[in-house]
Amino acid sequence: MMVQPYRGYGSRTRVFLMGRVFRQARLGRMIPRRGMLRDTADVVRRIARRGYADARVEIRLGDNSVAVTTDRDGYFDAQLAIAYPLPEGVAWHRADLVVTAGSEPPVQASVDVFVALPETDLMVISDIDDTVMYTGVADKLRMLYRLFVEKPHRRTAFSGAASLYQALHRGAEGHAQRPIIYVSRGPWAIYEVLETFFQLNHIPVGPILFMREWGISLRHPWPRRAEDHKRDLIARMLALFDEMPCILIGDSGQHDPEIYTQIVEANPDRIKAIYIRRVDDKPDRERAIQRLRDQIRHTSCELVLAPDSNLMAEHAYANGYISSHGVEAVRRDIADCKNDPA
C-alpha cells in the first residue's frame, strides 16, 4: 500500500488536500535501473495502480486535523477548517498524513500546502496542456504518448513560459508570492511526471489539479469531456480565495476561451485578464475567439489571443501585473530560444 498526496492549497480559513492510496507492483530484480525497459515498466505500473478503497487518511496541518476515507478508486478529497492559525508571513506549510487500512501497517507521508498570504493581490489559474507544455491535444494518439510515455526531460515547455509564470508569481514588486494553480486534462497517473517537468523547466510550483480520473475502457478509449469539471473547479477556486482578482491562462486548441468567458460573465469584477495561447492558424477559430472578446468587452477583463509568451507579458506589464524585470526576462528567453533552437 502506498499513499500519494498532491500539493494542497487554501486560504487562512480553509485548506484543500487531495491524494490517492493505492497498490503498486514492485519492479523485479531483472528490470534495469535505466533504459527503455525501465521506462516501460514505470508507465505500466502507473497505469495499472489499483486504488485502495475505504482507507482512513488522517491529516494534520499545524494544530488542525481532519480524517477522511478514500473512495472506491482510492482517492481522498479533504477540506480542513483552520481553527488554529498557521504561522504568519509564510505561504508554504507542511501537512502530515497517516493512512491506515485493514491489517496493513500504517503508512506516513507529508506534502506541501500553499496558503495565500493576507496581502496577496492576485491569483493565476492556468491550463497546462498546450499552454505551458506542448502536448498536441488535437492529435489524440500523440497526446496519449506524450502524457503517459514521454519522460519529463523530453517534454517541451513553450519559450518564455517559465519566465512569464515566474513574473506573475512575483508580481510588480518582485516578492508577491501569488498563488498559481494549474489544471490539466490529463489523468492523476501523470502527476509525478508533471512535478518533475516543472522543476526541470524552473516553472513556479503550485497545486496541480486534474479534472477527474479518466475512466478509460475498451468501450470508451478516450477521456470523458471535462469542460463542466473545469468550470466548476475554477468556480471553487474563486470562492475559496474570496474577492481576490484572478488571471486565467489557456490555449485556443480546445474550449478554454469559451469556459473562461463564461467564468467572466459570472464574475465580471474578479477576472482581470484572459491570456489565450494561439496554437494553430485557423481563421474560423480566431473569429470565434474575437466574438468572445467582444462578448466580455463591457467587463473589466480583456481577452488576449497571443502567438507567444511575449504578448502576454507585455499586456501584464502594461496593466501592472508584473515588473519590468519580468517582461524583460520573457523577451530574453524567447530571443535565446530563437537563437538556439536546439
Rank of each mutant, 00 (worst) to 15 (best):
L117W: 11
L292Y: 04
A83Y: 10
H93S: 07
F114T: 01
Q166M: 04
W188A: 01
V330H: 02
Y191F: 03
R293V: 11
D130F: 14
I216Q: 02
C246V: 10
E104P: 00
A55D: 00
I59R: 05
L218S: 14
N201Y: 06
P85C: 12
V98C: 13
G174Y: 14
R45D: 01
Y260H: 06
L144P: 03
S252M: 12
A172K: 07
L141E: 12
V99R: 04
P105C: 06
T13C: 09
S103F: 08
N64M: 10
I289W: 05
H169C: 02
Q177H: 15
G160T: 10
A78E: 00
G253M: 05
A109R: 12
L168A: 02
F198E: 00
M133W: 13
E314C: 06
V66G: 03
A138S: 13
M211D: 00
P204S: 10
R155K: 14
A342Y: 14
M244G: 00
V15A: 03
S309C: 13
L292H: 05
E192P: 05
T13L: 13
N339G: 06
R38K: 15
A226Q: 06
S65T: 11
D284F: 15
P223E: 00
P268N: 07
Y9V: 10
K140C: 11
R293F: 08
R212F: 08
T40S: 14
V43I: 15
R142L: 04
L27Y: 14
H153P: 02
R331D: 02
H315K: 05
K272Y: 04
E173V: 10
G62K: 05
A176N: 06
R72I: 03
F16K: 08
E104F: 10
A335E: 01
F197I: 05
E58S: 15
G8V: 09
F76E: 00
G171R: 07
P341I: 14
G215Q: 01
R20L: 06
A101T: 12
V68Y: 09
I203Q: 02
M237V: 07
L248N: 00
D284V: 13
G51A: 07
P207W: 03
D284N: 12
R224K: 09
E314P: 01
V107W: 11
A235W: 11
V124F: 03
R170C: 05
Y321L: 05
Y321I: 03
A78M: 05
A318D: 10
E328A: 12
E265F: 15
V327W: 00
F22G: 01
P106D: 07
T299F: 05
E314Y: 11
Y52H: 13
N310T: 15
R178I: 04
R142Q: 07
A157P: 06
R278V: 13
P187Q: 09
M211I: 14
G206T: 04
P187W: 05
L122I: 08
L305R: 01
V132C: 04
D71F: 02
M211W: 02
V66C: 08
A95L: 03
G160Q: 09
F198A: 09
E213M: 04
S65C: 11
P223R: 08
V3L: 04
V149T: 14
E258N: 10
Q199E: 11
D242Y: 14
